[in-house]
């Protein structure tokens, strides 16, 4: 390393916010798929929505250290909101999307106070409880949600008044991809900002974060609200592009699946959700073709093995590989830091 310490430090901080070649490549492929994979738009649409959902979980789990077993609460809320809004008010997708996102954010803001109170296990149970309560409400308010039959009769207008949703999912994929990309850009800026860094201190050590003057609770409320809004946007996209909402959007397995995807893809770098969603959907596709009924067995096995090998260690292996690919010195293995 050359240059004064100040130059080196500036360079290093700037490097975390600079785009890497692989990132450009990823988005190029994602947008290229609009023309290159026309017959797969339906599944691609599903993947990109799931990835956005997983990214929203990464914001709280990977960056702020809040584990949630009920993140589908916001996904489901956004989906029902967008679906009901289209039926009862207006079928314009963007209006519905923006309002569903804001409403989910508001729900996240309110429930964040519940989540803040507890620690660890209590927190997991509260997030789970919130999702269960919302699921039960959706189940029982049949007149509004359609209950167990699902919300029928969602009819969407064209996006921007121009692009009708088609049977092949082309408009759906482009719409979901553009929305996800914009939300990703915002998230990517946030995580490298001073605000984003302060979240990481909370994730690593809330006690010390407080002791250096970071208002921990307020930051957690802020990021929880943001993540809820993102999840709501993902839910709204699903409702609008599939024009159907069922209780499945808020079910426990959806919360568990998204957690699994994020864990497979790795937490704390935003792309984990994308990688996880792709791997998960492809696996689901392959295994379902092979043993349609029992695919949860293999998902369970993957989880068990993943934990036994150690997520940390695997992430480290990936980091080593990544560094090698980029011709950088290998990161040293982690040693224990006192505290916690």
């Amino acid at each position: 390393m050359q240059g004064t310490p100040t130059e080196t430090a500036t360079r290093h901080l700037a490097e975390t916010s600079r785009w890497k070649p692989l990132e450009f490549a990823f988005w190029l492929v994602a947008f290229g798929a609009i023309w290159l994979l026309p017959s797969h738009h339906l599944i691609l649409n599903e993947i990109i929505i799931t990835a956005l959902f997983a990214m929203s979980l990464d914001l709280i789990l990977g960056y702020a250290g809040i584990a949630s077993l009920g993140h589908a609460a916001f996904f489901g809320f956004g989906a029902y909101f967008a679906g009901i809004f289209a039926i009862r008010v207006i079928g314009d997708p963007l209006t519905g999307l923006v309002l569903a996102t804001l409403a989910s954010g508001a729900l996240g803001f309110i429930t964040s106070f519940l989540v803040l109170r507890g620690v660890d296990l209590a927190r997991l149970m509260v997030t789970l409880g919130v999702a269960l309560v919302l699921g039960e409400i959706a189940n029982k308010m049949t007149w509004l949600t359609g209950g167990a039959d699902g919300l029928q009769g969602v009819v969407m207008g064209p996006v921007l008044g121009l692009f009708e949703f088609d049977l092949y999912g082309r408009t759906a994929y482009v719409y979901s991809l553009v929305v996800t990309f914009l939300l990703f850009l915002i998230a990517r800026r946030i995580v490298v900002s001073p605000f984003g860094l302060s979240l990481r201190t909370i994730r690593d050590n809330p006690l010390r974060a407080r002791a250096i003057g970071i208002p921990v609770n307020r930051r957690l409320i802020a990021v929880y609200t943001l993540a809820a809004a993102y999840a709501g946007a993902a839910g709204a996209l699903l409702a609008q592009t599939t024009q159907f909402v069922s209780l499945d959007v808020i079910a426990l397995h959806r919360s568990a699946d998204v957690l699994l995807m994020l864990v497979i893809g790795g937490t704390g770098y935003l792309y984990g959700g994308f990688a996880g969603a792709i791997v998960f959907k492809v696996l689901q596709d392959v295994i379902s073709n092979w043993t349609p009924q029992y695919w949860t067995f293999w998902i369970g096995l993957i989880l068990v093995i993943l934990v036994l090998i150690g997520r940390e260690r695997m992430n480290h292996q990936v980091a080593v590989l990544w560094a090698r690919l980029r011709g950088k010195p290998e990161p040293r293995p982690r040693t224990i830091v006192g505290g916690h």
Binding site: A9, T10, H12, L13, A14, T16, S17, R189, I190, V192, S193, P194, F195, G196, L197, S198, R200, T201, I212, G213, I214, P215, R219, A222
Partner: peptide, 21 residues
């Protein structure tokens, strides 16, 4: 150290500017 200094200077809520700028 950057977090502590930024926080002290009141930049903790700045979410649009990259840290270190």
């Amino acid at each position: 150290l950057g977090v502590a200094v930024s926080e002290r200077m009141g930049h903790g809520y700045e979410f649009w500017r990259p840290a270190g700028s």
